[in-house]
Design a protein around this nucleic acid. Sequence first.
DNA 1: GAATTTTATGCAATCGGTTGCGTAACGGGT
DNA 2: ACCCGTTACGCAACCGATTGCATAAAATTC
Lengths: 380, 380
Amino acid sequence: MGGKRGRGSGGSLPTVDMISARLGVSKSTVSRALKGHRSISEKTRAAVMAIARELGYQPNAIARGLVTRRSGIIGFVIAETENPFFEEQLEKLTKHVSRREMQVLLLQVATNGDLADVIPSMLQYRLDGCIILASVPVSKEAVATCTRYGVPVVLLNRTMPETKASSVLCNSFAGSQRIAEFLIAGGHSRIAFIAGRQNSIIAHDREAGFRAGLAAAGREIYAREEGGFTFAGGYQATKRLLSLTPRPDAIFASSDIMALAALDAIREAGLRVPDDISVIGFDGIRASAWPAYRLTTIAQPADILFERSIDLLTARIEDPNRPPEAIYVHGNMLIRGSARIPPGYELLAEHLDRPSSAENATAQKPPDDPMKHDAGERRA
Amino acid sequence: MGGKRGRGSGGSLPTVDMISARLGVSKSTVSRALKGHRSISEKTRAAVMAIARELGYQPNAIARGLVTRRSGIIGFVIAETENPFFEEQLEKLTKHVSRREMQVLLLQVATNGDLADVIPSMLQYRLDGCIILASVPVSKEAVATCTRYGVPVVLLNRTMPETKASSVLCNSFAGSQRIAEFLIAGGHSRIAFIAGRQNSIIAHDREAGFRAGLAAAGREIYAREEGGFTFAGGYQATKRLLSLTPRPDAIFASSDIMALAALDAIREAGLRVPDDISVIGFDGIRASAWPAYRLTTIAQPADILFERSIDLLTARIEDPNRPPEAIYVHGNMLIRGSARIPPGYELLAEHLDRPSSAENATAQKPPDDPMKHDAGERRA
DNA sequence: GAATTTTATGCAATCGGTTGCGTAACGGGT
DNA sequence: ACCCGTTACGCAACCGATTGCATAAAATTC
């Protein structure tokens, strides 16, 4: 009680000044003691710490940020669009960031907007950097503006060679290629593709990788529909695919959310999975593991993606002139029941599910999890 | 461009000082002009604005926060636990907050932790307030600490009468009561309940409301299992319920994620929904609308919950001595195919789905949405 | 014991805004 | 011409830390 004009009814928090007054030393000594500067004697250091603890001192990050020119906050830019995968993994982002003693500020750009819309916020709060989801509309100019004003940018699942932004990506091309191989090995002859939102790099890569994988075996896409990375889009796309004659016997939906919709559409058409038709997705969202779907997919290793992003960001904060880089990490194929399992893969399945090189993105599961038998289950 | 020691390679941002120097007026004049203080002549005001625009001036929120003692940031405290409903609605929170020209800082507390763990961050960044999800472990002391230090707290879906925290809740009691009535009207005779995490207020309310609803008709719960608000928990709980003889003919799973698991477990047991057994959930997560589930549920009006939360917070920021209050809003019953529809409700269905009193939480749907025919569909 | 190095601390400026108070200039009334 | 009330703006303190430089005290060297 009794800070002269504290925050309303609340008590005002203790400051360095109070500690220094209480101890009869200077502000600077307190400041240095608090952060373990070695030019401070162990004795006064201990005394300062004691009083700080007693008073419940919390350094004012705002004031510190003003002089250090580091806010300690990084921005996480999301799109208005639903993006189940990263929504689900938000928790991991926060975990990694707080491990570095930093904070996450959430910024959102509208579907018909641009990264530029949130730049004022980024600049006003002097963010130390930002991580931008692939679903966010981003112009080169906007990214350039960020870096020009000293806000390092890391793009998730997207690159922008003309800018100074770094990138961390789950290798969509390689993953999709792998899916193509898997489907071919499974003996499928009419392999269809459901594309994502156009002019999205990730959509492009997944399509290109898939086509490349097919081409390597002298094959090509039997049919192609657009699904816009949404459930409804995937549903409609599948309806259209199912109306073809002959009907496709496999569908690669380039995102899990579309793949789940595909499974629903297939089921409604009275067809069986994977007997009549195989479905594979990409992302590894939680729902893909649910018994109703048991979707074979490639899981993006969210933990790694975030960790690398923050690595890149902090490195860039330390050394602003560090050249941008792009890190690719591989996804983990989760072989479940939605696609016919090629001979030989039954054994690999278990292994593929948990590669030793990287933590599994969907690792921690409760013991009695209905989704525990991830491989080999052929009934959908 | 030579700010003397800008942020690394980046140009340093213009300041009030630069503007004032450029125009030959004082800092104070610039500051006042920028925020439309009326003691500034229209002429200089325009001149200041012009230069500010030309220089691309962005006020330093950090510096401002130092003196105004308002950071302009509110904390959004989430739990480590997966919480599909609020994850999905994050976008709405951000939208409402940015509409008030504020920012959202994401804070996370571990499952075995407490709100107290993030209080240092809240205090260091001098958050103007915080919104706390129901899934976050919170002690009374922690909440008291927040309010004592001038950080107003709004609890979502939970109350804490002993503290000065305000609350915004979707009326779990009333909703569950309504579900009980619905199931009874549907002619069910063995009505089972899947409970949430114990010592969670929301779990308690949903159970109490449900029991009250049954009791009003002289009925009671036929069986009860715990599902811990998780998919796996709901799945196991359902297995146990299905092993009873006679088997329940209706299940109210007190969260959607458990209800979806219930539907999966039921399907795997070879039973049909709703012919053999009806299932109802609570929350209104996106997946509840998917064709594989078509879950009848009560949707929490996220938009309203967030809006009221922010209202409460800003009111409290304006007047710190404002007494705490609790706002209850009703959920919207979404009648879909997972539960037998009682006679009379077919007509009501459409109406119940979109009450005029409140915006529908799951309103905006793409035109060709497979989930558009929300009512009347009896096949699961 | 004097000179020199090392160690521990203080002074004061600084970050970039905001704001209470003081005052010059101006216009109008008589 | 004098008084007075506005109007428009400047001065300087302040918010709460950090930090370069100066300096007093202690330790070391010769």
